[in-house]
């Protein structure tokens, strides 16, 4: 019984880590309708900045938690205003090409600045201990990630559902013309949403770096995982992304435990089954 409990904790922790990584992508896709293939790269830059900030002192992790997301948000501001804005009228294919091009550029820039060795971000002593649950040692940080994921999900849900900003954003998703007719600067809304997406990507990078590490091509691996979570959850729904993250976390963990040779297959199989049964994802709205 203990082993099931321990695996349950593993699954929930991994799932919430996925949520922290994916929520920025989900927000940007849900509202801007832009499939940001550079999301993984923004995540990576957040992680590398965290590495640079903490390399001399692990206590700087707290500083990294503020600096890295802000730096990535600024970078997103630059991307949105100089490049992405040009593609809103060009459609999905151009955005795919643009953000993929950006991903390539950031890939080489990162290896120029930080090299191609495998790196890790060390945690401050207060987070690096172990905690025993179900007769099994867990790194305390894994449990902290559960907390962070839950708080983040609650905050995003609150903003989207209960505040004026959330209302504007939700309206923007449904009808861009109507929003501008109400006298709200839709351009500004899009820019701000993209910045928040970047901020969350950078934040995800810092949170995930101590667990997943930093290595060349990490961004593409993260991207594909984030896309799967996004799709299973359904587009434009934070609640859906949350549910999908937990679901994938649990399915992956238990498949590794019960039938390890299938685990590679299973996540994509799950995605295919959900899309065939529920073509708009778990909790998604219809987006063309």
């Amino acid at each position: 019984m203990d082993i099931i409990g321990a695996q349950l904790v593993n699954g929930v922790s991994y799932g919430l880590l996925l949520f922290v990584i994916t929520c920025g992508l989900a927000l940007v896709f849900g509202i801007l309708g832009v499939l940001n293939l550079a999301h993984g790269s923004l995540y990576m830059i957040g992680a590398y900045i965290a590495y640079s900030v903490t390399v001399n002192s692990t206590e700087n992790f707290w500083i990294a938690l503020i600096i890295a997301p802000i730096a990535v948000a600024l970078l997103s501001l630059l991307i949105e205003t100089t490049l992405l804005r040009l593609t809103y009228h060009l459609g999905h294919l151009s955005q795919v090409l643009l953000t993929f091009g950006l991903a390539y550029v950031f890939h080489d820039l990162a290896s120029m600045v930080w090299g191609s060795n495998v790196l890790t971000v060390a945690l401050p002593p207060s987070l690096s201990g172990t905690t025993t649950l179900f007769n099994q040692n867990f790194p305390t940080y894994r449990l902290v990630v559960i907390g962070i994921g839950l708080v983040l999900a609650a905050a995003l849900w609150f903003i989207q559902e209960k505040t004026r900003w959330g209302a504007i954003i939700r309206a923007g998703l449904c009808d861009k013309e109507m929003i501008s007719a109400l006298g709200i600067n839709i351009k500004l809304v899009l820019t701000i949403v993209f910045i928040i997406g970047g901020f969350l990507a950078g934040f995800g990078g810092v949170i995930a770096a101590p667990i997943l590490g930093l290595y060349p091509s990490m961004e593409f691996q993260t991207l594909i995982l984030a896309l799967v979570v996004l799709v299973i959850g359904g587009l434009g729904s934070i609640a859906g992304t949350f549910a999908a993250s937990i679901l994938i976390g649990l399915v992956e963990t238990f498949s590794k435990y019960l039938m390890p040779e299938l685990s590679l297959f299973l996540v994509f199989g799950l995605m295919a089954v959900i899309l065939v049964v529920k073509p708009n994802g778990l909790l998604g709205k219809k987006v063309a």
């Binding site: 082993i3 695996q7 593993n10 922790s13 991994y14 238990f254 590794k256 435990y257 390890p260 040779e261």
Partner: peptide, 18 residues
């Protein structure tokens, strides 16, 4: 047990091994 290449999370395998 053979985890996939570029596997993010070994927690599940480690729980089994331990």
């Amino acid at each position: 047990v053979y985890p996939p290449l570029e596997n993010n999370d070994y927690s599940s395998y480690l729980t089994t091994i331990s």
